[in-house]
Design a binder for these strands. Structure first.
Length: 452
RNA sequence: GGCUCGGUGGGAGAGUGGCUAUCCAGAGGAUUGCAAAUCCUUGUACGCCGGUUCGAAUCCGGCCCGGGCCUCCA
């Protein structure tokens, strides 16, 4: 079986044929660091992390690039509101982003370029576009001229003529056509800026990804991912900039886009108050449960995120970890089973892969000494970025009024009561622990416990 | 209006031209001092109408309903 992925360019599932099978290169649009990451930001990170892990098992070398946008008008606004300098603001939120994504078991990309480190590359790209007649200067701005690109609109299937003809917002007076977009814009004295051949200013939003992907992956590379909402205009404009500044060289072979995340059935937004930051969720749910929730629907489907859904994901992880706990003394070598691999090779079908994990868990529950099954469960978990800790620490995760030593002491007391057939006392202790959120499980090897 | 993605059992959510998805919840049973966990058994399903086919929830056409995008957005 070969890897198959749905390519937004064709809207079809295609066999993945690498540009260079010895070296896979892919790029995902990363965060704009001006605030805490929300759960919607986490979805592409987690989804493309699974793709990254899969590619690494299939090919000898993979370079994964995910940028950090550290110059943007939203950042400027946040800086003015908070009074923090832009540099310290972006450093702070980039660090928070890293911590949060680490809690979700997302691997670091191989390269994590920052926009502000690539201003010279952006200059180069703008110059090239001006020279080739794909861009023009107007009132301190440099704009991409959509009319100069015959194939503009292919990814989003927008007709260039329609985009040129109609616009639903007021068109800036310096634009030749409403669909033209900014490559470089002037900065006031208060705004951050760089001296450029076109005056002091800052880059337009789309430019950085074109400049950074070319620098770190080359003009033509395999996969570019991001959220569905980036198809237009962001990715469409990336294609325009890259193709036109690279003499028509193909840009990206496979475009992948993850679906939207809603919260309680409604689009997440600050005004609706249904806004979950990853950090908030991590305060009362372990990262792997959040990760499972994000992977429980196929990446292209919309996913509704809610606290009950999150709780169900937690239960799902509990079930998988229970099988590992039952087989704790079984030696196993981690191995990626064929069923999990095939599920993921089929357009990253994570729900199918998770179902396979559950099948393996059932097998292991029936036969805890089966090292091969345990190895397959661990290996399948690994490629999904799940089951990365030992079961005991999983079940002891969380805070309660009672600490581990007290729990253990009460369990010893309960055992003494049970040995003496004093079930009134042993049940009283169990109830006391239950009231504190501790659930006991008696089994052949003794009593284990977990925080519920 | 243009583009686009969907409508599967109580809930979540895959998949396939004919064969149990899986998980949660429900029912019954095994096990247990009683539980918990686990195991076994178990009900209700593929929006509507046509067509192709020996056979369609799965392919084709039409219709109904819902979501998203159309220059802030993962």
């Amino acid at each position: 079986m070969v890897l198959r992925i749905t390519n937004t360019l064709s809207r079809q599932k295609e066999d993945f044929v690498p540009v260079d099978p010895k070296h896979i290169r892919f790029y995902v649009c990363g965060p704009t660091v001006y605030d805490y990451a929300h759960i919607g930001n986490a979805r592409p990170v987690v989804v493309f992390d699974v793709l990254y892990r899969l590619l690494k098992t299939l090919y000898p070398r993979v370079t994964y690039v995910r940028n950090i946008t550290d110059i943007d008008d939203k950042i400027i606004d946040a800086s003015q509101k908070s009074g923090d300098e832009i540099g310290s603001l972006t450093t702070k939120f980039a660090e928070i982003f890293h911590q949060d994504m680490n809690e979700l078991n997302a691997l670091s990309p191989d390269v994590e370029p920052r926009a502000t480190d690539h201003i010279p590359e952006m200059f180069e790209m703008i110059s090239s576009l001006l020279e080739s007649g794909h861009a023009y200067e107007a009132e301190g701005h440099v704009l991409f001229c959509v009319r100069a690109m015959e194939s503009y609109g292919q990814l989003s299937r927008h007709s260039r003529d329609e985009l040129v003809a109609g616009a639903r917002v007021e068109v800036a007076p310096y634009k030749k056509d409403p669909a033209d977009f900014i490559l470089w814009k002037p900065s006031t004295k208060e705004q951050p800026g760089w001296d450029s051949p076109w005056g002091r200013g800052r880059p337009g939003w789309h430019l950085e990804c074109s400049a950074m992907s070319a620098k770190h992956l080359g003009k033509t590379f395999d996969i570019h991912g991001g959220g569905q909402d980036l198809i237009f205009p962001h990715h469409e404009n990336e294609i325009a900039q890259s193709v036109c500044s690279h003499g028509g060289a193909p840009f990206v072979k496979y475009w992948m886009h993850n679906g939207y995340l809603t919260v309680d059935g409604e689009k997440m937004s600050k005004s609706l108050g249904n806004f979950h930051t990853v950090r908030d969720l991590l305060n009362h749910t372990p990262g792997e449960a959040i990760r499972l929730a994000l992977l429980s629907a196929h990446y292209r489907q919309p996913i509704d995120f809610s606290l009950p859904a999150l709780n169900e994901a937690k239960n799902g992880m509990d079930r998988l970890y229970t099988a590992l706990r039952i087989s704790a003394h079984t030696k196993a070598d981690r191995i990626l089973g064929a069923d999990v691999q095939q599920a993921l090779e089929d357009d990253i079908n994570t729900p199918q892969a998770i179902a396979e994990l559950h099948r393996l868990a059932s097998l292991l529950n029936k036969n805890p000494n089966d090292g091969a099954t345990k190895g397959a469960l661990l290996g399948g978990g690994e490629i999904l970025g799940l089951l990365q800790q030992n079961p005991e620490s999983w079940f002891k995760w969380g805070a309660s009024d009672i600490d581990d030593a007290e729990i253990e002491a009460l369990i010893v007391k309960r055992k003494e009561a049970r040995d003496a057939k004093d079930f009134t006392e042993s049940d009283r202790i169990r109830d006391e622990l239950a009231a504190a959120g501790i659930v006991l499980e008696d089994n052949a090897s003794g009593t284990s416990w977990k925080r519920s």
